[in-house]
Design a protein around this nucleic acid. Structure first.
Lengths: 157, 157
DNA sequence: TCGAGGTTGGTGACACGTCAACCTCTCTTG
DNA sequence: CAAGAGAGGTTGACGTGTCACCAACCTCGA
């Protein structure tokens, strides 16, 4: 906690910060709406399906998927329960480790992600990617990676 | 909804998109944790207090605050109810419009935001602003503004 | 002046995320 | 090999956001 006056944001910095936050809010909202309307999936659903679909055998350990998605195990477990009830994924026992469980894509889940992906990519393009210049794309990739690296290295102050 | 194959993301675009999303997730988490630890406020609390504190008279119509924050009226109403119970804000009747209500900052609310702001700015600096070059700051401000403008102009499709 | 139609908030039900407690199983280590 | 530490996952309680709906209210044309 800073003791004296902190270095307040300059006008330029403030513009960037507010712009970022507003973009984040609006973009999430729009992409989520587009996705839900066109495919009946939430962004969370999409991420889970997408993660599984890119994996060898279309199945993954629960904890591995959770850590890749930056989700808590509890969150993923709850979410998988709901998706399982909708037939998108299936829990299987883990042969290696009797404690563990494996999440597998069902056919319905595979079909759902295949059907949803084109529309989602189009939506991401329209609202973000195609609005940026090539330089801005590269800048975004570069600095977001840097921010992520710093945050991942630091556990809690 | 696209009919044929969409334009999939290139490697560069994909790096930007994934980087952005990961940054968003981690940054939110970290800033929220910092803020809560140092001031006992959630980011939502902070935004409400901050919005009110920048206003003439430190009070605002509920619907105006909601639209400025890009929140639904219902969400704000729920949140104000909780903040009211903690003494951070107060509801007042609206003289112009008997349907309306006004949210006002209490002294406790003012003290809370004044106490929280320096630490929050420091946290934003450390995890985002100071990690970016001046050019990146300007690029972020520019393209986020552009994305926001396009999204604000479009209502639904 | 009255009624239709839109606006402003509030409310209850539900979906989702977090936290902490818990159980089971695995792995060390003496 | 037994005991305890610790990992993997599940569950329930709780807080928060969304959605649908309602009541109260305003505005404006007939």
């Amino acid at each position: 906690m800073p003791v004296g006056e902190p270095r307040w944001l300059t006008k330029r910095e403030d513009r960037a910060w507010r712009g970022y936050r507003r973009m984040r809010t609006l973009l999430d909202l729009q992409l989520g709406r587009d996705l839900l309307r066109e495919s009946g999936l939430s962004e969370a659903d999409y991420d889970v399906l997408s993660g599984l679909s890119e994996t060898e055998g279309r199945k993954m350990r629960l904890s591995e998927l959770a850590s890749q998605m930056l989700w808590s195990k509890s969150r993923l477990s709850h979410h998988i329960t709901r998706m399982e009830q909708r037939g998108l994924v299936r829990r299987e026992e883990c042969s290696d480790d009797a404690r563990g469980s494996v999440v597998a894509l069902t056919n319905a889940g595979w079909n759902a992600i295949v059907a949803a992906a084109p529309g989602h990519v189009t939506s991401v393009r329209r609202h973000l990617i195609d609005v940026l210049t090539a330089d801005e794309i590269d800048a975004l990739a570069a600095f977001s990676q840097r921010v992520v690296d710093r945050l991942s290295g630091v556990r809690a102050e």
